[in-house]
Design a protein around this nucleic acid. Sequence first.
DNA 1: GCGTGAATGGGCCGAATGACCTATCCGGGT
DNA 2: ACCCGGATAGGTCATTCGGCCCATTCACGC
Lengths: 215, 215
Amino acid sequence: MTIKLMLADDHRMLREGLSRSMADEGFDIVGEAQDGFEAIRMASQLKPDVILMDVSMPNCDGVEACRQVKSSGSLSKVVMLTMHVDKEVLTNAIRAGATGYLIKDCSTREIADAVRMAASGETVLSPQLAKSMLDEVRRLDERASTEEERVVTKREEEVLQLIADGCSTPEVAEGLYISQKTVKNHLASIYQKLDARDRTQAVLQAVRMGIVHLD
Amino acid sequence: MTIKLMLADDHRMLREGLSRSMADEGFDIVGEAQDGFEAIRMASQLKPDVILMDVSMPNCDGVEACRQVKSSGSLSKVVMLTMHVDKEVLTNAIRAGATGYLIKDCSTREIADAVRMAASGETVLSPQLAKSMLDEVRRLDERASTEEERVVTKREEEVLQLIADGCSTPEVAEGLYISQKTVKNHLASIYQKLDARDRTQAVLQAVRMGIVHLD
DNA sequence: GCGTGAATGGGCCGAATGACCTATCCGGGT
DNA sequence: ACCCGGATAGGTCATTCGGCCCATTCACGC
C-alpha cells in the first residue's frame, strides 16, 4: 500500500528534485504535470492518492486546478506548495478544497510527512504557517493581557465588555452597581481614547484592539 | 546528534509506552517525570532537546511546568500533550511558551515527526487542531460567500457595513442616496432578523456572522 | 392577475444617547 | 503638602434612536 503521488509544478528542476526525493521516501510517483490543465487531466486518469501542486503555474494556477480536481469528484488529496506565506492564497486554497498547504523551503522530510498525513486524510499546515497563526494568537493575547500601557482603564473595559454583551446604559449601571451617569462618563472617556463617536464605534474599535471579546 | 527527549506524564502505562515507541523512533530518552515539579527539576538537570509534557498532571500542571521551564532560561522545546482539543488550553500553552501542541490519540509516527520538528525549532500543531482551525476558516468563508440563504438583504447589508464603518443614520442615508427614514426602516428589519435591539448589537452580530468586515 | 417581499418614503413619540459643565473622594507619585 | 488621574455622581441640552403606525413602487413567482 505505497502511496501514489502525483506532482504538478512548472519548474523542471524542482519537479525532478522533488520526484527523486519523494521516490526515496518510498512514494510511488505516478505522474508529473507541467501546468494546471495537465494536472487536471492526469489526476483524472492516474487517480493518485495525493497531488503535490504548486500554487503558481501557467495554464490554470494550482488553486484553480485544485478546485477543478475536487469538483470532478476525485478522491485525490491535494497538498499545495507555495514560495511564500500568504494568508490570502491559503484561504483560497482551503476554499478550493486543498488538504494541506506547505511552503517550498521546508525539508524533504517535512514534505514526506505532510504527504503521508494528507494520504490518511489529515489536514496539514506548513510549520511556518502554523507558527504564523500561533504568532497571531500570541500577539492578540499580549494585547489583551498587557496590564501596563492599557489604553482604557479596567473600569472602562468592564463597561465596554458589558455593552458588547448587549447591555444598554441602565443595564451596565445595574451590572456594575454604579449610576447611569457614571456609565456615561466612562463612555465619554472611552470615546476620546478610542477615537469613537458613539458606542457602536467604540465597541468595534475595542474588538479590533482585542480589548473586548465576542462570545 | 540524536535528539534528547524527556517525558512528563503521570500515567505510568502511557509514559512507558511512549518511552518505548520514541526509543524505537531513534530518540534518546534521557528522563521520565511523573509530575510537574519533577519535570521542572529534571529539565534543568538533564537539559533535553525536547520535552513531551502532558497537560494534566498532579503537582503543577503541564502548562505551568512549561512556563517554569521556559522562564528558567532553558533551551528545551516543550511539546504539550492533551486528551482533547481545547482552544482555551491551547492558548494558555502557547502563552506559556510551548513549541507544539498534540492530542494524545495521534499516531506514534505523528508524535515522532512533531518531536523532530520541535527539535529543529519549528512550531507544530496536531493535525486535528490544524484541521479545526482550517474548518473555522472554511466556516467563516462559507458564511461570507453564501449568496443564497442570506439572512439580510443586499441593501440591509450595505447599511450594516456603513454603520460598521462609522456612519451615523444621516450619513448612511447620504452614502446610499436614500432618506434617513429608509435607513431606519432597514435597521428595524435588521434588528428583527439578527435578534438585536440596537445598532451596536446588530453590527456585532453581523461581524460574528461574517456579514460585515472590520477594516 | 395576485400575492409576496424588497426597497423606498412619511409621521409621531418616548426613550436613549452624547456633549458640556461641575463636583467629590481617594490613592499614588513629586 | 500638593497635584493628578481614576471612579464616582449630578445637571442640562439638542440630537439621535427605535417602536409603531402607514403608503407606494417594482420585480418575481405561482
